[in-house]
Design a protein around this nucleic acid. Structure first.
Lengths: 287, 287
DNA sequence: AGTTGTTAGTATATGTCGTACACAGTACGG
DNA sequence: CCGTACTGTGTACGACATATACTAACAACT
C-alpha cells in the first residue's frame, strides 16, 4: 500500500545517499575553475561511464551474431520521435517500436534511459553553423552565433526541457562553445575574461529564448499560436488592476499600444545591449 | 506500434490533438506583444482552468464532511519533498503518503499532476526580497535582484528542471517580475524598452545560473562538489588536445592557471557587463 | 429529529513505463 | 566444428498516474 513510500519520507538517516571518497569534507559553495580541473582526475565512475558512451568509439566485438542496428539509428529514431510528438513521447518502448524491435533490444546499446537521453541531447544540438569569415570582425559573427543557437533551440524545443548542464557534455555541445569562442578570441581578451564573456552571451541566449521556446513547444504539441498567446496573456493580464503589480501592469498596457516588436527583434535588441556591455569592457580595458 | 501517447492530460478527446477555435489559420512565427493581449480574450479552457487554480480563491462549499487538509498543505508537503529528495521524488503517492492520506485524496484538490506542479512551482519561487530603498539608484537595486533570483534558483535547483515559462504564471512569478520592473522603471525608459530590459536581465540571470544550478542539484542529490566538478571537468577536458576545439581548449587551460574567480563573482562580472549595456543604451538615448 | 443530497477520503483496478532476468538462436575463433 | 560470447526476445515486476465505484460525514430543508 503506502508503506513503501513511508520509507522514502523517513529516510533522512545518518547516510543521506551516495557516498564519495571524501566523507565529511565541509561542502564549499564557491567553486573555482581550478577546482574543476583539479578534480577531473578522480571521476565518479557512473558519470565517467555516461561520458564515455558519448565520446568513446563503441566498436563491438566481432563475436556473436551481427548487430541488427546501430546506436546511431536508435538516437535518430528517438530524436525524430521527440521532434514529432514531444520529448514526453520518447520512451524506451516507443523508440524500439519505431525501430521495429523489442523494448529490451535498446538496452544492448544504452545501459538505461539516462544514457539514451544523453545521446539524444547531443544529437539534438546538432552542429553549429560554419563560420563564414574566420577572420572578420567578432561582433557580427557572435550575433550570427546567438541567432543560430536560438533558432536551433526553437526548432527543437524539447532540448530545453532537460537540464543539459548537468548531463555529460558531448561533442556537439563543445562544438557550439568552440563556435562562440572562436570569434570572441579575436577580441584579444584574456582567457579568463573570454570564459566569462562566453557565459554571458550563452547565458543570455539561452535565457532570453525561453519564451520563444515555450511557444515553439506549444506549437509542436498542436496548440495554435493564438491559444498560446491567450493563455500567457491571460496570466500576465492578471497583473492589470492588481495593486501588487502596478509597475509591471503599466509596462504591459503601455507596451500593447506602442510599436510592437517581433520576438526575433526583441531578442536581437537585447543581444545588442549585451554585446554593447562586452564591447565597453574591451575598449575600457585596452585603453 | 508507436504508442500514441499524448501528454496524459490532453488525451481524452477523440481527436488526438487539441482543437482551437481557429482551426486552420496559418501558423505565424513572429508574434508581437499586441497579438498577445488581443488573443488573451479567448482563452484555451484547459489552460484557463490551470491558471484559475493558481489565482482564484478556492473556497469549498460548506456541505459534506469537513476537509481534512488544505491545498496549501499539499503544496507545502510537495515542496519540502522536492527540496529534500529532488523533483523526481514528487509523485502523487509520495506527497499523499507524507500527508498521511491515500493517493487519490489529492485529486480532490488538484485535478491532475500538472495542476499540482503549477502550484509547486509558484510556491517554490517564493517572494522576491523587499526593496530596501524604493527610490534609490536603479543599478544596485537591479544587481541585488539578480543575485537574489540566482540564490533562489540555487536553493531550489529543481525549479529549473521544468519549463516554467510554458506553465501558467502564478502570483509569485509576477511578483519577481514586478520587483525587477520597479527599480528599472526609475530609469525613465519607455515601456517597450523596459519590457526588453526585463527580458535581457532576467534572461541573463536565468541562463548564467545554469552551471550553479546544476551544481546545486547534484549536491542536493548527495553528490559531492568534488565528484561533480570531476564529471564536468572530465567532459570539458576532452576538448584539450582535440583539433576541433582548439580555441576553447586554450581558454580552458589558460584559465586554470590564471586567477580563479568564484562562481558568484563570475555571475556578478557578467551581470555588470549586461547592465553596462543597458546603461549605455539609456544614456545614449537620452542625450 | 429525520431525511436527503453533496462532498470527503478510500479501495480497487487498469494501462504505461523502466528495467531485471533468463532464454534461444547466431556466428566467429579455436 | 564446437564452444563461447554476444544477439534480440519473452516474461515478470514494481512504480506511477488516474478512472471508477464505494462509504461515510454532515449541512440544509423538511
Amino acid at each position: 500500500m503506502t508503506a513503501r513510500k513511508q520509507k522514502a519520507s523517513a529516510k533522512r538517516s545518518p547516510t543521506p545517499r551516495r557516498r564519495d571518497e571524501e566523507p565529511d569534507r565541509p561542502v564549499r559553495t564557491e567553486l573555482t575553475h581550478d577546482d574543476l580541473l583539479q578534480a577531473a582526475t578522480r571521476v565518479d565512475p557512473e558519470l565517467r561511464r555516461r561520458s564515455g558512451l558519448l565520446w568513446e568509439d563503441r566498436s563491438r566485438s566481432t563475436r556473436g551474431p551481427r548487430a541488427a542496428f546501430t546506436p546511431e539509428e536508435v538516437v535518430r529514431a528517438a530524436v525524430s520521435l521527440a521532434d514529432e510528438e514531444g520529448f514526453g513521447a520518447v520512451t524506451m518502448q516507443a523508440v524500439s517500436a519505431r525501430l521495429g524491435f523489442t523494448t529490451m533490444a535498446i538496452y544492448r546499446y544504452f545501459p538505461n534511459k539516462e544514457a539514451l537521453y544523453d545521446a539524444i541531447v547531443d544529437a539534438g544540438l546538432g552542429s553549429p553553423p560554419r563560420a563564414d569569415d574566420p577572420s572578420g570582425p567578432w561582433r557580427p559573427a557572435v550575433t550570427r552565433w546567438a541567432h543560430a543557437k536560438r533558432e536551433m533551440l526553437c526548432a527543437r524545443p524539447w532540448l530545453a526541457e532537460l537540464p543539459f548542464v548537468a548531463a555529460p557534455h558531448g561533442p556537439n555541445w563543445l562544438s557550439w562553445l568552440e563556435a562562440l569562442a572562436a570569434p570572441l578570441s579575436r577580441t584579444g581578451l584574456s582567457a579568463a575574461d573570454l570564459g566569462q564573456m562566453i557565459s554571458v552571451i550563452d547565458g543570455y541566449t539561452r535565457g532570453a529564448s525561453d519564451t520563444s521556446i515555450a511557444l515553439a513547444r506549444s506549437r509542436a504539441r498542436g496548440v495554435s499560436v493564438q491559444a498560446w498567446a491567450a493563455a500567457v496573456g491571460a496570466d500576465l493580464g492578471r497583473a492589470i488592476g492588481d495593486p501588487r503589480f502596478t509597475v509591471f501592469a503599466s509596462i504591459l498596457t503601455a507596451a500593447s499600444e506602442g510599436t510592437a516588436r517581433s520576438m526575433t527583434e526583441s531578442f536581437d535588441f537585447g543581444l545588442q545591449r549585451v554585446l554593447d556591455g562586452v564591447e565597453l569592457y574591451m575598449t575600457a580595458g585596452s585603453e
